[in-house]
Computed example of a mutant assay.
Amino acid sequence: MNKITKYKVALMHVAPVFLDTSKTIDKVCNLIDEAAKSGAKLIVFPETFVPAFPIWSALRAPIYNHKWFKLLAAQTIQINGPEIKRVAEYAKKNSVFVSLGINESANQSVGCIWNSNVLLSSDGNLINHHRKLVPTFWEKLVWANGDGAGLRVCDTEIGRIGALICGENFNPLARFSMIAQGEQVHISTYPPVWPAYDPKESSLWSVADGIKIRAGAHALEAKVFNLACAAYMDKTMLDMLADGDKEAARILLDSPRGVSLIMDPMGRVISEIMQDSEGILYSEIDLSLCVEAKQLHDLSGYYNRFDIFQLKVNRTSNCPAIFIDGDSTYDNIDTEGRREEQE
C-alpha cells in the first residue's frame, strides 16, 4: 500500500436538515463533492449528523418528549441501508475517505437507536462501524449502549485512522485503546450545542473549552492529528427544538456552542476555530510529524511499562440472542449484532 503522508482534511462545521434523513444525506453528498473539489482526502461530519442530535432531551421532562423520539426513530438508518450505500458511492466517486455520524437502528427493535460513526474508504467500502459506548447524561433517554466492536484503528493509505464520539474522548481507556493500535489521525465528533445547566444559573460550563482540552490532551498523549468536528445549529433547528417555548429558545440561544478545530501531534491548533458560523474547515496535515513527536513520549512503545499496566478490550458485538436453525451453524457476529451463517 502506497502511503500518503501529506494531504488536506475537511471538517464539516455545518447543520443537518433537521430530522430529515433524505435531505440530510443529499447535503452530505453535496458537501463531499465540494470538499473533494477543494482537494480534501479525508472528510469528517459531526456526531449523529444524520439526521439530528437529540437536544430536546435537555430542554423538557421526558414525559413531554415522546413525539421527538418517534420522529427520530422514524428517520434512523441501518448500516447496510441505502443511505450508507449512497454516501459510499460518493466517497468512491471522489476517491475520498468519509467519517459520518448517524442515528442507527437495526432489525432487532423498532425502538432501539444507537449513536454511531461509520468510516468509509476511498473505494467505497465500510471499513469501520462504531457505536458510542455509553450515552452521556440526558442522552440516555434516546440512545442505547454500544459495544467495543468498533474500537478499531484502520490502516489506510492516508494513515492509521481512529475515531471516538464526543464524551468517549473523556475516557482514558477508550483513548488508550486507540493509542495502542498505532493511531495517527484521530477523529472526535461533537454536537452543535450541549446544555448541561440552565445558562442563567451557571457560567462554569463551556463545551468549547471541553473540546479543546480533550482534543489537545489526546493529540499530545497519542502524538496524533486530532480532527475535532462539531455540528452547527441553524435557525431552523433552533426554532424546531424550541417549538414555540420561549424558555427553551433562551436556553438554546445562551448555551455554549461546540467548536471545530484541528490539532497537530504536539497539541497545537493548526486551523482556524469554527464556532458561530456554518462552513467547512480545511487544513493540511503531515503524518511524518507523528514520528518525531514519538521520540518524546511513545505510549504504545518505549514510554510505557506493559509489565505493570495492562488493558483488555472486548471487541465482540452485542447480540440479543443466538438462534440455531436445523443444520446451520452460526459462529460469527457482524457489527450489527446479528449472526452470520457460515457454510
Rank of each mutant, 00 (worst) to 15 (best):
V313A: 14
S203T: 13
M1E: 09
G337N: 03
F170R: 14
E278S: 14
S95H: 15
M274G: 03
L120N: 12
G337S: 01
N94V: 02
D26F: 00
S277H: 12
N304M: 02
Y90C: 04
R152A: 01
S99G: 09
P195L: 12
G326D: 14
G301P: 12
I308H: 11
D234H: 01
P265C: 06
H129Q: 07
S283D: 05
S116G: 02
F49Q: 05
K140D: 07
G279H: 11
V269A: 14
K85E: 04
L59R: 06
E201F: 13
C29L: 05
V291G: 00
I308P: 00
A91Y: 10
V193F: 00
S328C: 11
A35F: 06
F176C: 06
G258S: 05
Q181W: 04
L164M: 12
Q310C: 02
P192D: 00
T21P: 06
I187S: 10
Q310E: 15
G182K: 07
V185M: 01
I113S: 08
P82C: 04
R305W: 06
N103T: 01
W56K: 00
V134G: 01
H129D: 14
R152S: 03
A174Q: 07
T76P: 02
N103Y: 00
D254N: 04
Y90G: 11
E104M: 10
L31S: 07
L126I: 11
I322P: 03
N30Y: 04
R60K: 15
L119I: 14
Q310W: 04
H186Q: 15
I43S: 07
Y232A: 05
L173S: 08
L141Y: 09
V259W: 01
F137C: 08
G148Y: 03
V134E: 12
K37F: 06
Y190D: 07
K92Y: 01
S202Q: 05
P320F: 04
K212W: 13
S95T: 13
D264N: 15
M233H: 02
